[in-house]
Amino acid sequence: MELTMHRKKKLTKARKPAARKFVMAYHLMLLPGIILLILFNFLPMFGIIMAFQDFVPARGFLHSTWVGLAHFQYMFSLPDSFQIFRNTIVIAGGKIIFGTLVPIIFALLLNEIRVKWFKQTVQTIVYLPNFLSWVVLGAVFTMILANEGMVNQFLGIFGIQPISFLASNTWFQPIMIITDVWKGYGYATIIYLAAMTSINPDLYESAALDGANRWQNMIHITLPAIMPMVILVATLSLGNILSAGFDQIYNLYNPIVYPTGDIIDTYVYRFGLRGAQYSFGAAVGLLKSVISLVLIVISYKLAKKFAHYTLF
């Protein structure tokens, strides 16, 4: 017995250096990502001080005039401030709502397909737009939605006059929501399909013995089973309510649709960078970041309460 214990202690001691080397390899793999995170996320946070200064690049942070909350007061005094926040919330809120509902419905329908090759083909096709940048898709949608584009040519068959979709304050926000959902619903569908694979097949067999059809299985078994994942995805997306998608809107909007298409990010870009109002742009961006942080904390609490999801 003593020999056995002695051997176990020797084996344990021998394994410790190997385990440390194994863990160190994982830490080294994380190192490039940590360095990029520090360079592009943490170090730029020192620029927050610009929001409280009348920043002049030639003077730098140390010699620029301190103005306190003047830029924030000026921001709320602008007639465009309410409009910009409203546009951001409407566009981002529409993306979150429809970006959650459409993948659920599509995943439920796709899960009912029994022909494996067809199911995999459809799944791959709807997932492909997720890899395309908005620079490419912006040019594609601009051609499709132009006055002589595919959509207006189709509407012309029914005698409908051409519509300037991307120059219309009525159509611009719905188009931003629809195109964003089209681009991203394939990725979200995969998440829900993965959640469906964990459903116990015995539940469907029991339901079949009770005479349940496929529609009833979908409503009473599949949907309740993936509901925790749905709640998790929906609550975590609340943190993005003020991120309506700069790259999409910047590639599709124009001065005509500023009243309905201008969001916080594009506003900061136009006035902060192109207009060289660095302090004002930093103030708007900081306000957005603070509100987003509060929403992320709230969404995390909701995810913990309703979906039992925890990070810490």
Rank of each mutant, 00 (worst) to 15 (best):
G272N: 01
L145W: 01
P259C: 12
E205Q: 13
A282K: 02
V67Y: 08
P201M: 03
K10P: 00
M227Q: 07
V151L: 14
A25S: 11
L62Y: 06
G272A: 02
L273D: 08
Q216M: 04
A167E: 12
Y253T: 12
L28G: 01
L166E: 08
T12Q: 13
Y26L: 11
K21Q: 11
I190N: 04
G272F: 09
N251I: 02
F46Y: 15
I35W: 11
L30I: 13
V122P: 05
T124R: 08
Y267L: 00
N251H: 13
R214Y: 03
V126L: 08
K301Q: 14
F280R: 01
K10Y: 10
K8V: 10
N200E: 15
K288C: 01
I113H: 03
K116L: 12
S206Q: 10
F55W: 13
R15I: 12
G275R: 10
L31V: 11
I296G: 02
L203K: 06
K21V: 14
D265Q: 14
P255R: 03
S292Y: 00
A70I: 01
L223G: 06
I160F: 11
I144D: 09
Y26S: 09
I264A: 00
L145R: 08
G184T: 07
N240D: 15
E205R: 08
D202M: 07
A14G: 15
Y192D: 01
A303G: 12
G93P: 10
K183Q: 14
A212S: 14
F172M: 04
N169E: 09
P17C: 06
A212D: 07
F98T: 01
I35N: 09
G211L: 07
L132K: 09
E148M: 00
T189Q: 05
R15D: 05
I175K: 04
I113C: 04
L3Q: 12
F46T: 13
I89F: 15
A25P: 00
L108N: 06
V297Q: 10
A195N: 04
N213E: 01
V135N: 10
Q161R: 13
M29T: 10
I34A: 14
G60D: 08
L209P: 06
G184P: 01
S292D: 06
N152D: 11
I160Y: 10
L36T: 10
Y192M: 02
L62S: 12
L109N: 03
F306N: 00
D54S: 13
F131V: 13
A225E: 11
A225H: 12
Y204F: 15
L145V: 07
A234P: 01
